[in-house]
Structures are given as C-alpha cells and as structure tokens.
Amino acid sequence: MLKDITLGQYFPGTTVAHKLDPRTKILLVVLYIVALFCAKSLVTYGLMALCLAVCVYISKVSIKALVRGLKPVLFIIIFTGILNLFFTPGDRYLVEWGFLHISDTGLRNAVFMVLRIMLLIMGTFLMTYTTSPISLTDGLERLLNGLKKLHVPVHELAMMMSIALRFIPTLIEETDKIMSAQKARGADFESGNLIQKAKALIPILVPLFISAFRRADELATAMECRCYHGGEGRTKLHVLQYQRRDYIALALGVLICAGVIVLRQFGL
C-alpha cells in the first residue's frame, strides 16, 4: 500500500543528536562533506568513518535503518566501484584480462570511492533520521536568511516546503481512495504494455490534480483568514537558539574538518 512509504524518515528521539539545533546539524553535514572530499588516505577515511560511528552511537539510530537507506543507491555504488576498479590506468596491474585490468590505483580508487559514497549517504541520512522535516525547513530558512537581501524569497520557499510536507500524507491517502474508486469501476492498473499502463493512470491523475488545486485554493483562503500576509513581521512559536552543545559540536566539526585538510597537505 502507498501509505507504507515513509517520507521524511524521521525517527523521533531525545538524544543529543536529536536536540542539536537544526542549523548546527546542517552546518555539520556541510563540514562532513567537505572533509570527505578532502580525505584521500586510509588514515583520513578511517577518521571520517570513526566520526560517523560515534554520531550513530550517540543518536541511537539503528545501523539497520542506516544500511536500509543505502539500498536505493546500491546500483550507483556498485557501478562506480566497478568502473573505478577496472578502468583506472595504473603503474602496476594486479590482474589483466583482455581489455579489463585491475591496477593497484584502480583497486585503491574503487575502495575509496565506494567508501566515500557510502559515508556521504549515511551521514546525510543520519541528519534526516534525527531531525523532523519541519525543523529542517526552519533551520534552512534561518541559515539562508541573509539571502533575503539579494531578493531571494527565502520565507516563501520555506513555507512552500513545509506545506508540501504537510500535504504529502493527505495526498497519498487521496491517491489510495481514487485508485480504489476507479478499481471499483473496473480500472486495471496492472496488465498491458507500458503505454496502456500510462493511459490507465489518467483516471487517477486527473481527479488527483483537480483535488490538489481545490485544496490549494481553499488552503490559501484559510491562510488569509488567519491573517497570513507573507513573512514580514512574523514571529515564531519555536525560536531557534544555539545552546552550549551546539557551539561544542560546531567547534569539534571545524576541528576535524581542518584536521583532515592539514593531513591532506602532509600527503595522508
């Protein structure tokens, strides 16, 4: 059933990882990504993996859930691995097999590349697992606040994002209902070739779009009735405020990132 899809993938909790300010978490992920792309030796990769492991431990997110997050990109990981493994020219070939060959640098690159992608994905997933979509949106809005001066509609974008998040479950439920109603009229979504299958979607998509527009219209009126008039002069129920733990976490993040860059200078 459509309802079973988990979106946002937030696992509520009360650990330090959950309590950190969303802005801190976004900045930490940025630092983490920078560090990952600077890492080029076993030592630095090991350091990054260790960082992730510590964060996972603190957040109490199950390893299983993190690994599950890798599934959709498994193909890309394997593909990149194979590409690097077989097609990297090197000084010394370990195996040669017609036009296929595995060089020492190839093996190295493949392992690092796969490691990098996996760490990258697990790191970002850890953030979405421990941060609710709404506070993530909030954090982004506050971080990008400076762009308002450049006439970037930061508030509007954030509002759009949070309304989209709010309506995802409603629209999924609606899709389910419309599908059942059309099935009751004998609609067949399973059989036939690709074109027939695409055509079979029309009886779902048309009512869904009409309903989405109607909802948007009614929501806009309801928002106006509740005195919504853009981001100007708006206050907040939950004001984001950096705590001591945020400063500590950010300091640690900067330190580690800087460390990786320094190590890189030393060829590690």
Binding site: E174, S180, R185, G186, A187, P207, I210
Partner: peptide
C-alpha cells in the same frame, strides 16, 4: 459507490465518464 464519489470524475464529458465502467 464510495463516499464523495464526485472526486473520481475525470473524463471530458459526462457521457464518457459514465461509460468508463461499462467500457472496462
């Protein structure tokens, strides 16, 4: 016939919409 069945209408004309079930 589901609750609020009017939200399942999709065809260009009333005739075509009524014909959806029997055509299937």
């Amino acid at each position: 016939v589901f609750q609020y069945p009017e939200y399942q209408l999709f065809e260009e004309t009333v005739y075509k919409d009524i014909a959806f079930g029997p055509t299937n």
